[in-house]
Design a protein around this nucleic acid. Structure first.
Lengths: 179, 179
DNA sequence: GCGCCTCTGGATAGATCGCTCTAGTGAGAG
DNA sequence: CTCTCACTAGAGCGATCTATCCAGAGGCGC
């Protein structure tokens, strides 16, 4: 049972904790405990402290989530089917994980938008990247891409709070309308 | 210069701090400082501590925001104009307040969804109420109401992170499409 | 063998967290 | 007047936060 390198374990554990507790709600003690890593290693691999760790987790999670969504998107034939399958897949994941495993960026993005400029820029980069790849796939329709992304992110907020997939499917229907 | 009662000042100050720092990011020391209230008064008025304060702030902010949005909505003649004016108004407010004054519930909702059941229920009640009044105004079309709400909430996330009103207008366009 | 360097392991500092406690104040009832 | 009680005022508790510090383990070149 080879464990992944310590640095990766810390990144992975932090990403998971961020999703359910947010940035300020996640303590570094909890991180190293979950990662089964010694405390000293954290500051060896991330000398910039919590902020650097946060920024790296945001970028890594953003890239991971983008790949995940694109894999679902590209598995379908038509644009409408592709967009719909992303929302349907998100709804299924939410239900399976008891509404924990949602968008890994949104929570942190809202928390840090007005308090930490470094982390805000990291979230902005992620959203810009997502907008880019989705715009490409929608025939350069950037406005539509932003609209769909907003519907997806907002549906995460509502579905997690209400513990229901209904908002996710409703948002999906709105996103595919007129495609 | 009559000050509002201490209890109201605490609620108001907490609401403002929640919007920009979230729930876990807001300390009670900061709250009483901003409210110009003594620390002891906080636990006199909110014996349930931070959780009770949080729940009351969520409900009060939810009701306030609902009234605000409905005032904008009902000032327009057609459904399409009403929905659009909500998104346009949100975009203007974001720009005027340097992207601080967004939805007062979303940040807290994501933070507490998986960590604090009492607060999660408070956010769920607020979203349920919003969905109800919007469904009424859309000819009982609950699905459309949820979709529009998701687009609005998600646009707050994107606009704050990107520091741009573009996502808000894009989401607005998606929301009025087909009305 | 020895020296070098990356990484581990954890104690600990200093600040801040939510919260409790008690003393003091002031308006209204009798 | 006195008594009562809602409220003010803030010191301080134990716990937890981020961050620093140093000692040691293990691999690698020489």
């Amino acid at each position: 049972m080879d464990k992944p390198p310590t640095r990766d374990r810390i990144l992975f554990a932090t990403a998971e904790l961020f999703r359910r507790q947010g940035y300020t709600g996640t303590g570094l003690k909890t991180v190293v405990a979950q990662a089964e890593a010694p405390f000293g290693s954290l500051y060896h691999h991330f000398p910039g402290g919590k902020q650097q760790l946060g920024a790296e987790v945001i970028r890594a999670s953003g890239a991971y989530f983008q790949a995940l969504v694109l894999a679902v998107y590209d598995s379908q034939a038509t644009t409408a089917e592709s967009v719909w399958s992303v929302f349907a897949g998100a709804a299924e994941t939410l239900e399976e994980t008891d509404y924990v495993d949602a968008c890994p960026i949104a929570t942190v993005a809202l928390e840090v938008a007005s308090t930490d400029e470094v982390l805000r820029q990291a979230t902005a980069e992620v959203f810009t990247s997502w907008t880019g790849v989705l715009t490409e796939r929608l025939g350069k329709d950037r406005e539509r891409a932003l609209g769909i992304l907003a519907a997806l992110e907002g549906a995460f907020v509502l579905s997690r709070a209400l513990r229901s997939t209904e908002p996710m499917y409703a948002a999906g229907r709105l996103a595919v309308a007129g495609l």
